[in-house]
Design a protein around this nucleic acid. Structure first.
Lengths: 123, 123
DNA sequence: TCGAACCCTCACACACGTGTGAAGGTCGAC
DNA sequence: GTCGACCTTCACACGTGTGTGAGGGTTCGA
């Protein structure tokens, strides 16, 4: 598919998709006319990228962790020790983020529940 | 405590703390000499801010959700409907982030486990 | 009393993700 | 053939969080 359709289907813009490609997060074939040609898998991939970006991960990190998320056993190939170290570090950082977000989200939920309670039974 | 100590205890820098104060995320008293004076609770608060910033929330949003996280029932006071709407929206966004991070973090864990397995029993 | 270490404000600068517009090529429908 | 919708590259600009340094005041111990 072309860039416009991919943008529409992922809720992004062509500008962003070109940026992600420039950063090495997605790849595309090129038609004879120079138009980018994305395959179907890009839709999910872009959604994943969006989620990770929105969760605070920079493109540089996303680029490093994406390869090990795409498929299964095929990609166990031969990661360098540095790659493994990076993955372990990012795994820990993501866990910390999850913990922080969960704690604060639950606090918001508690607050909202308390508000609703006091609304129903004021004083 | 003064800004330097707070920075040391929270792993930040005075520069950042001044920025957070400017954004309304923390407050401080001022000594006769103009020096900022932070109370003990700021340590936890700054750590919380750091975690949320690192998780992709902008200061504007953090400022809005922080008041309902600080203590308990006292703060049920009288949130405006807009405030509640904001909290509900951010609650949903945080849940989405958590889900995305968890999914990808677990995928990394699976990958690392697979790598370790194939290392132990190659071929 | 001097110097080091701390504080202040102000301002310029950077990285990163994103918006926007210019200048131009391609394609499909009328 | 022409028009609108799409694509290309390039470039400038913005917001946000952060770094850094200038210029200057305070505090405290040697």
């Amino acid at each position: 598919m072309r860039i416009g359709e991919l943008a529409r289907r992922t809720g992004t813009t062509p500008r962003l998709l070109r940026y992600y490609e420039e950063q090495g997060l997605i790849t595309s074939a090129r038609g004879a006319n120079g138009y980018r040609d994305f395959d179907e898998a890009c839709v999910d991939r872009v959604r994943q990228i969006r989620g990770l970006l929105d969760s605070g991960l920079p493109t540089r990190v996303i680029k490093q962790i994406l390869p090990c998320l795409t498929t299964g056993a095929v990609h166990v190939s031969d990661p360098t020790p540095e790659t493994i170290a990076i993955l372990e570090r990012e795994h820990a950082r993501m866990s910390a983020r999850i913990e922080c977000l969960t704690r604060n989200r639950d606090a918001i939920a508690d607050y909202l529940a308390a508000v609703r309670l006091s609304r129903r039974a004021p004083r």
